[in-house]
Design a protein around this nucleic acid. Structure first.
Lengths: 195, 195, 195, 195
DNA sequence: ACTCGCGGGACATCCCGTTTAT
DNA sequence: ATAAACGGGATGTCCCGCGAGT
């Protein structure tokens, strides 16, 4: 996890390219529909390197991609939640950020974890666990913000689950309908609830 | 949709078997991971009949299965929502029903539509549209119940979206964590919100 | 072979439709590439009738189509050969007639027998024999014309084989090159040879 | 086309095995009737390598096989044509060589290009073009021999077409009849014509 | 005379993972 | 660390032929 080699800033370029490309494809297509050939082709990295860096194959690559995407999104969530002192505005900002990303991608880029979680949770324990970890990190960020807003521990936990669940669900509905209305509804309801 | 021929009760036994088996497999594994061979084997129906009944292939079979599952769940939702005069209790009953199904299946049977919707919405317009139809039917049932509880039209629409979204999202989180807590949190929050 | 039923002139309509459609498809695509489904669809005849009229399946249908096409072309050959008293002109007219048909079809309709003969002669004795019969009928027409032009029996037989062979070969070359030059060359050479 | 790597003599053994086997099967059965499974089995080469060497699939494999067979036969034709100073004898030798091959194979191995050309010329442009190239090479060899025998350019071109066409046609007739008479007739006529 | 549905076996394609040789 | 090639299984699709039931 910390053995950089060539790049002084700590990146094996092709390993990273694999992870990034995989994360992007998993987000759009899910696990089963994403082939290693496609990953290799789009990443531009040499094919022979794949099983050098990821001897565990597709599963290991997917868990790495999920950890990567989960960590990135956790930071983004924390950032957005810290951008307003008003809880309602902070939550609305979170929903808006996800809305913007979804719309910008033509309703293709929703949650980077949910699709794989639904598909593969029952078939692969490492993938299920990677999904649970990502969700856990996001929930933690939400809980911290809710505690900061004055909720008690139990309420914060429940409310964080409601927020994340409604956000995830709204992303599903929005993708299926090609319509931002579900996200807007959730944003408005969550803002009202915070008041 | 009213063409019984031989069997006065059921009609087209293998066609129905295909649809039911497909619906069950899509719910657990999603679209890409579900092979036609598996469908044929588990349905017990003859393979040669598959392309007779569904010349559109896997896509047509999936949309039929989604319509089937969507309709069944729509009825179930309406039933549960009508089972209590108190809105909060009705919603809690809805969440509990989904919880029970998820737990009974070892955290494998979540929403019968969401997985396929996330995977294939961007790749197949008929599948996306089938998913949107199913969600639409469920939203309608929710809206009717909310209107009956006294909400005005706009509030009912928004609240229905929040309810469905949080339910869908909680099912994702619960499957990934193998833990009913997300569903319980959503149930409690929705019940409190209805009060 | 002679039990007409509905049509007073002696045609079971769907049986004839099968034969005609099959002949047309075999001419363009050959035997293996022509599916029964395609024949049924394009003929407009009911699918269930196929194995009633042709219990021998695809092979019987193909031999019937070859006999049909062979007979029709035999008449056409005899007609063209009888249209001029000059042997060279008669042969040139024959080549021109085939040329015209080939060009009119966009270089798709060549000899109605040759493709199937090459593909299936080694695999199906009835098909091989149907091809041999068709070629035999055409050779006979040619021989008669050559005898009428004064050749002796042995010369007529040899010359008929040369004429048919060069015509068949020119049709192959013309289809592959999408170019009538091979047919024109054969026409000119045969005309010169007849002088 | 000059990339030997491991084996100093042959190089790419499985790629070559695919091409040779495909050429042999196409010659006997044509394109549609020849399955990739059969090619893989009979070539003895590993199945996984097929789409590595021929990512274009069956079509690319067929065009490679046609180019291979076309080139080999072009050399053989040039050899035979150069084996006698008398044009008539040279042409008779050419026909005899093809006759011998046909008879030795039990009337199964005719022209290695004609069957595929007839079947697939209308459906696949690369295959049509491969066929045209093969025929073109053979025509060139014939034309060179005819020019060497004193014919002028135009006469040589026409005569070459007649020779190739009558040879191709005679091969069809001979296969359909299981009888070398058509080839013998063409040989005698061509020899007489050369005198 | 005709149809629907059965039956299962190919078809071409593409997959994921490994090996061998640099 | 990379590349070429292997290995064979699974994919969705479509095939031809045949019943049972009008």
């Amino acid at each position: 996890m910390a053995e950089s080699r060539r790049d002084p800033r700590g990146a094996r370029p092709s390993q990273e390219a694999f992870v990034r490309t995989t994360a992007a494809l998993l987000r759009r297509q899910g696990y089963a529909a994403t082939g290693l050939n496609e990953i290799v082709t789009r990443s531009g990295a040499p094919k022979g390197s794949l099983y050098f860096h990821f001897p565990g194959g597709k599963e290991q690559l997917a868990t790495a991609a999920m950890a990567h995407a989960g960590g990135e999104l956790a930071s983004a969530i924390a950032n957005v939640l810290g951008s307003s002192e008003d809880l309602g505005e902070a939550l609305a900002g979170l929903v808006d950020a996800m809305s913007a990303g979804l719309e910008a991608s033509g309703f293709r880029d929703g949650c980077p974890i949910a699709t794989v979680a639904l598909e593969a949770a029952a078939q692969s324990e490492p993938i299920r666990s990677a999904a649970a970890d990502a969700f856990g990190a996001w929930l933690e960020a939400l809980e911290r913000r809710l505690l900061a807003a004055g909720l008690d521990a139990q309420a914060a936990q429940r409310r964080a689950l409601l927020i994340l669940a409604s956000l995830e669900g709204a992303l599903i509905l929005a993708r299926a309908r090609r319509d931002l209305a579900p996200l807007q509804a959730v944003r408005d309801e969550l803002r009202a609830l915070a008041a």
